[in-house]
């Protein structure tokens, strides 16, 4: 079962020549643990309305990079800006979906309370928090489960709760850190299409980190390929696949196969 996703978008193919607004600006980012250099000179732009996939070999500094981008970890060199503001701690313009949904959700709060929790500490009215919560849960298809506890739901549904929490937060940039790495294949397909649909409907800007090459191509308008540690950017590839994308038709295109080979090669595999 595949739903048609990403209804009215065309992918931007040449990101540098126009006047689009850069939501994420990374310049010369460096980070080391002790004497071990983990991130080396990462420079990257993500523009408003883009969905960019970030892939890297397993064990590369993806997690470290993400923690630096989100302000959870201080970086040593370079600058990170999100929505124009320099990142020194986690900015309130950023939403994050973690891989580990069971730990990122609070088991002692209901689904709705999990989504609402961050909103209680934002300068918005109680009524607006309620509306955003209901709307976000509705849009991920969980309107019927708001009073349940997260552990009463399947893994895929729990990750939907985490997505709803990020949506309700109204972030300018949504970072997704290998969000579907721990769900089964069928659920993964559904969540990918959910992501595309939400991105298209809401004009979102998404940075999607994954180690799955097909997922990176299927979702992304561009693919950022990282190297092994010390991590830097090896290549940025535009994805010229038509939207809306379709799990069967898109993956059957010649271009999809060509991209898969290029990403595979860029990651350092030899065929």
């Amino acid at each position: 079962m595949t739903e048609t996703a990403g209804l009215s978008r065309t992918s931007p193919s040449s990101p540098d020549k126009d006047d689009r607004v850069a939501i994420l600006e990374v310049d010369g980012l460096r980070k080391s643990y002790g004497s071990e250099l983990v991130l080396e000179d990462i420079t990257l732009r993500i523009f408003e309305g883009e969905l960019v996939s970030i892939v890297g070999p397993s064990g590369c500094g993806k997690t470290t990079m993400l923690r630096c981008l989100s302000g959870l970890l201080p970086h040593e060199g370079g600058t990170v800006r999100i929505a124009g503001e320099e990142v020194t701690g986690p900015p309130d313009t950023l939403g994050l979906v973690f891989q580990d949904y069971s730990r990122s959700l609070l088991p002692w709060l209901s689904v709705a309370d999990n989504v609402r929790l961050p909103l209680r500490y934002k300068p918005i009215s109680k009524k607006e928090a309620e509306e955003r919560t209901a709307e976000a849960l509705e849009s991920v298809g969980l309107a019927a489960h708001t009073r349940k506890k997260p552990w009463q739901l399947s893994g895929g549904m729990q990750q939907r709760v985490a997505i709803a929490r990020a949506l309700a937060y109204h972030p300018r940039l949504l970072l997704m850190d290998e969000p579907f790495a721990s769900v089964d294949a069928q659920t993964r397909v559904e969540l990918e299409d959910l992501t595309l649909r939400l991105w298209a409907e809401r004009d979102m800007t998404i940075a999607f980190v994954t180690h799955d090459i097909d997922e990176a191509i299927y979702l992304g308008g561009r693919i950022v390929v990282l190297t092994r540690t010390p991590t830097t950017i090896r290549e940025v590839m535009p994805v010229d696949l038509p939207r809306p994308r379709d799990q069967i038709a898109t993956k059957a295109l010649d271009e999809f196969g060509r991209l898969r080979a290029s990403v595979f090669t860029a990651l350092g595999h030899h065929q």
Partner: peptide, 20 residues
């Protein structure tokens, strides 16, 4: 991960204490 979540979503320390 829970601590990261609290920080990313801007929970003040009293909220993190109470809810996490």
């Amino acid at each position: 991960v829970r601590d990261d979540m609290g920080r990313v979503f801007g929970l003040p320390w009293r909220a993190r204490f109470r809810w996490m």
